[in-house]
Write a protein that binds this DNA or RNA. Structure first.
Lengths: 108, 108
DNA sequence: CTTGTTCATGTCAAATTAGACATATTATAT
DNA sequence: ATATAATATGTCTAATTTGACATGAACAAG
């Protein structure tokens, strides 16, 4: 239940932006957050690249616009599963996702 | 909701083994399943490599043995989030996970 | 200033996933 | 064969995540 910690911090005014290497996170928690933020950023970038709206992407995977907005905003209440589904729908390959995690793919 | 489809198939006798490239899956669904199976396999391999029991791994991430068993068995009812947490706890780096998805890391 | 479009934020009931627990099953010893 | 350890499977309730919806903010076009 480390999601609670993050949620609490956020509710107390913190903003988990593009980097989450601040206080109180173990290396593992940090890596976990990093992975999530990496992927959510890629979704945002790929969607922009395709010129899709959040609404379009949402409908195409049976989700809703608000959920995509939260996803792209790095909301902790969004599962990695949904993120991956979104990425794949945008034409991103497994390989590309791998490259992202390796650090070779800068979300253009 | 494509998890249902898989669940239904499984309940009808199908076994989603190490490869899930059979009928009725769109390329995206296929990639999604592949990613999940890749990662669950890596958890199993890394745990073995460390000589940990499922019970040990489970406790160390605040989960339970049955959940780890299901995870390693590729159960659709396990989230990618839990899988990633398990992997990170086993000392797997973000980079290594990336390599796995790129296809360069054979779960030894 | 109004209208329309896109994205952000909050809330809800419904669905899914969570950990815990009991109980097989399997394998390996002695 | 029996005992023991590790893993698999199934079932609870609780927590989390879900899509839907409403609404707000930001921005451009008219």
């Amino acid at each position: 239940m480390d999601k609670k910690k993050r949620k609490q911090l956020e509710e107390k005014g913190f903003r988990v932006g593009s980097s989450a290497d601040f206080l109180e996170l173990t290396p593992e928690e940090e890596a976990y957050v990093e992975i999530r933020l990496d992927i959510s950023s890629l979704v945002k970038a790929q969607r922009a690249k395709r010129g899709w709206t959040q609404e379009q992407l949402a409908r195409s995977i049976g989700s809703s616009q608000s959920r995509i907005a939260k996803l792209e905003g790095g909301d902790p209440g969004i599962s990695l599963d949904l993120m991956i589904k979104a990425l794949l729908r945008l034409g991103t390959s497994k390989k590309q996702i791998g490259k992202l995690l390796e650090g070779e793919l800068k979300p253009a």
